[in-house]
Amino acid sequence: MKILKVDKLSIRYKLKEGEVQAVENVSFEVNERDVVGIVGESGSGKSTLAYGIMKLLPSNAYFKNGRIYLFGKDILKIPLEEIRKNRWKKYSMVFQKSMNALSPVHRIGDQIKEALTIHQPYLSQDEMKKRMERAMRMVNLPLRVLKAYPHELSGGMMQRTMIALSLINDPKFVIFDEATTALDVVTQGQILDEVKKLVENLGLTAIFITHDIGVIAEICNKVAVMYAGKLMEFGSLKEVIYHPLHPYTKALLKSHPDFLKPGEEIKGIRGALPDPLKSFRGCVFAPRCEFASEMCFEREPEEISVEGRKVSCFNLSEVSK
């Protein structure tokens, strides 16, 4: 079953200085029980895409074109009331900055309970308590956290609280936006394990936004590589990580040291992300690409799609040598 279908989506921000193309012509699909990883450098539009899917974009952003089908419904067309009813119940999100996402003046328990009372008011008090305790155990937090205020918790504990909060209504689809980036390796590993269990046991579908390719390799079965708002490559984990086609994916993998392969050189990507306010000709990655030919600077490569795998590049034969 298709959970999410993003079709030629473009999102832009209106600023005083002009328009920022945060997401440009992105299309991909997420099936049930998929865990899709979205990788990219900071500023590549990963978070904007997630906020777009959740319809939580700030007021200066707008959908230029495209469609988002979530559980078969076009969420750009259905009224906000209906989205509000389902958001956090059918689908939820773990935000990047947990400190800013929790209210500093309410106890953690009350904040989690609010999410339950709004979406499942028919539950008894006992049942709610049981569910809250179960959620706490799931993310390996002691029950006393429910009585605590956010300032009493460490960053890692707050992040885990956010994950518990996002899972409290047993959603079918969750977006994790850099959810484990600030955590220690052990805690991160534990949470990734929990998410894996949820996918296997409860049929959860998830999107994992991160810039750590290691995390992607650990948990995802599909990978989307984004650069400057565009989808560079999309496919299964095995294909994208082990047999990358796009020069950007290749370069990204080369810049990542791996302790299991000692002695291997690492190499960065020269240059920086293009200015999002300026419009450009040709492929966005061309100025930083090793393989760029004249054509790359003139025309934008079209997306080549074969059996669910997508890549946008002119020089595929050159790159794969």
Partner: peptide
């Protein structure tokens, strides 16, 4: 627990934090 690219390894369970 460290995420790596090319190998699936077994995690050693750890209690608490």
């Amino acid at each position: 627990y460290s995420p790596v690219l090319f190998e699936k390894r077994k995690k050693i369970p750890i209690k608490g934090y």
